Simulated assay, not measured.
Amino acid sequence: MVREKVTIISKEGLHARPADTLIRLANQYASKIEIVCGEDKTINAKSILHVLGAGINCGAEVEVVCEGEDEQEASKRIVQAIKEGLDE
């Protein structure tokens, strides 16, 4: 399991286009990929309903958690994409 904290810099947070970018990227990997926001909310990063429903705003610190056969690559690419603003 790989865990890494990152801050959401997209002006829209994880809404609309940034959420779609995240989900498309996450679905390229076989690993289970989750976003932990706060102390009690864990969402499936491969589900548009979960990501949009979480209401994660710009400036929020989240933790990307990847578990599976390609967890290292998945974590690296997803964290990098979030740091770059998810194609903003």
Rank of each mutant, 00 (worst) to 15 (best):
V62I: 15
I82T: 11
R17K: 12
G55W: 02
V36Y: 11
I35C: 04
V36H: 15
R24K: 15
I23V: 13
D87K: 15
D20C: 06
A30Q: 15
T21E: 12
V36R: 15
P18V: 03
E69L: 08
K76N: 05
K76G: 00
G59C: 03
K46S: 07
A16N: 00
A30M: 12
R24T: 10
E73I: 10
Q28R: 15
V6E: 11
I56C: 02
G53Y: 02
G38P: 02
R24H: 11
I82E: 10
I43P: 02
E67F: 10
R3N: 09
K32V: 10
I35S: 03
Q28C: 15
Q72K: 12
V6G: 09
A19C: 01
V79M: 11
E61M: 11
A16F: 00
E61F: 04
A19E: 00
Q72A: 10
E4N: 10
A54Q: 01
V64K: 07
A26N: 10
N57I: 11
S75E: 12
E88P: 11
Q72V: 12
K83L: 03
I56K: 01
N27H: 06
G59Q: 05
D20F: 06
T21V: 14
V2A: 12
K46Q: 08
V65S: 13
S47I: 08
R17M: 05
R24L: 12
K5P: 01
E39Q: 13
S10M: 03
K46V: 09
E63R: 09
C37H: 12
Q28M: 15
L52N: 01
V62G: 08
A74V: 10
E12N: 07
I33R: 03
S75V: 02
P18S: 05
A60R: 12
T21W: 03
N57G: 10
L22S: 04
A19I: 00
S31M: 12
K76V: 00
Q80G: 00
E73Q: 13
I33W: 04
K46C: 08
D70Q: 13
S10P: 05
V2I: 14
E63F: 06
E67H: 13
I43W: 02
K83N: 06
E39S: 14
L14P: 01
I56F: 00
H15K: 05
R77N: 15
E67V: 11
R24E: 13
Q72D: 13
S47R: 07
A30Y: 10
P18E: 03
E4Y: 11
S47M: 10
K32Y: 05
N44T: 08
C66M: 08
E12P: 01
D20Y: 06
R3A: 07
N57V: 12
E4C: 09
D20E: 14
K83G: 00
L25Q: 03
A45M: 04
I82R: 09
I35E: 05
G68C: 11
E63N: 07
E61R: 13
L52S: 01
R24D: 13
T7S: 14
D87E: 15
E88T: 15
H15A: 05
V2S: 13
N44C: 07
K83W: 01
I33M: 06
N57P: 03
G59W: 04
G13I: 07
E67Y: 12
M1G: 14
G55P: 02
